[in-house]
């Protein structure tokens, strides 16, 4: 590794980050500036700080049921994440500690899930949910998102459990724990970064969901943020500052979660991706 010119490298990385994050910056600027500045033939790229206002946020909250969409997104995301994470933790532990034929099938299921377009899987979901009365139901969205999250989340958790030596459980059991206690008191606390990363992954995926939210729900009271944002585009004149304000609200939690948990997420993702 070279140790030469670290500041130059930092500068290069900063420049790249600035370029690739420009779309996000422009979204934020459009939401925060009076619309004359961004809806202009010669938009200002670096405005004065004094021009910042939250008018677009106030306007869109008054005119559109953004809080309802936000509530639906939060409810579905929490539900799907809890369900998937529970299932994936149990299954990941099993795949990590018990060698069986199930392991190969698990790899196959993972690959299969990577080949299923959401726009295809939503067809049988639509048919099935129509049969069971789950259309126009938040529970339907929770189940659909949980289902598509489980295979990869399981693989992630297996990777994290593989990194925890078996001897630790054995030691706990010698000290008088039974198997379940050893897992609950010893293994799970050690897997905490893995659980956090896996939960982040699942939450981001569900929060981003558009296909299911658009197809399995038609009642506007049950729309998620993604569907709400898309509804702006159907209007004759798109209200860009309002739309960017909703976009900012919707991206903010993802942004914070990702920045905090990225190191864990990345180590898990690459383990998961490279392991198969």
């Amino acid at each position: 590794m070279t140790r030469s010119r670290p500041w130059l490298l930092a500068l290069a990385a900063l420049a790249i980050a600035a370029i690739v994050l420009f779309p996000v910056y422009w979204m934020l600027l459009t939401a925060l500036l009076p619309s004359e500045l961004t809806r202009s033939r010669a938009p200002v790229l670096l405005p004065r700080l004094s021009e910042v206002s939250f008018d677009a946020f106030a306007a869109v909250l008054a005119r559109k049921p953004v809080l309802t969409w936000l509530g639906n997104s939060i409810a579905v995301t929490l539900g799907a994440t809890v369900v998937s994470l529970t299932i994936a933790t149990l299954a990941g532990y099993s795949l990590s500690r018990f060698r069986s034929r199930a392991q190969q099938s698990a790899g196959f299921a993972l690959l299969l899930s990577k080949m299923l377009p959401a726009s295809l899987i939503v067809i049988p979901f639509f048919i099935g949910f129509s049969t069971f009365g789950l259309i126009n139901h938040r529970l339907g969205l929770v189940l659909a998102n949980a289902a598509v999250g489980v295979p990869f989340a399981t693989w992630l958790m297996k990777g994290f459990f593989d990194g925890i030596p078996r001897e630790i459980e054995l030691a706990a059991m010698l000290d008088g724990c039974n198997g379940a206690q050893a897992v609950w008191y010893v293994v799970l606390p050690l897997a905490r970064p893995g659980l956090a990363a896996c939960a982040t992954y699942l939450a981001i995926v569900t929060w981003s969901d558009f296909v299911f939210a658009r197809t399995l729900v038609s009642d506007p009271d049950l729309w998620m943020l993604t569907v709400g944002m898309q509804s702006f585009l159907g209007e004759y004149l798109v209200d860009w500052p309002s739309l960017m304000a909703v976009g900012t609200l919707s991206l903010a939690p993802v942004f914070v979660l990702f920045l905090l948990l990225e190191p864990f997420l990345v180590s898990g993702m690459t383990q998961g991706a490279l392991a198969n």
Binding site: P23, W26, M27, S208, F210, Q230, S250, L251, V254
Partner: peptide, 14 residues
């Protein structure tokens, strides 16, 4: 990590 719908609206605007 940016949701697809947000990618869409941002690039539509850009």
């Amino acid at each position: 990590a940016v949701p697809g719908v947000i990618v869409s609206i941002v690039f539509l605007w850009l």
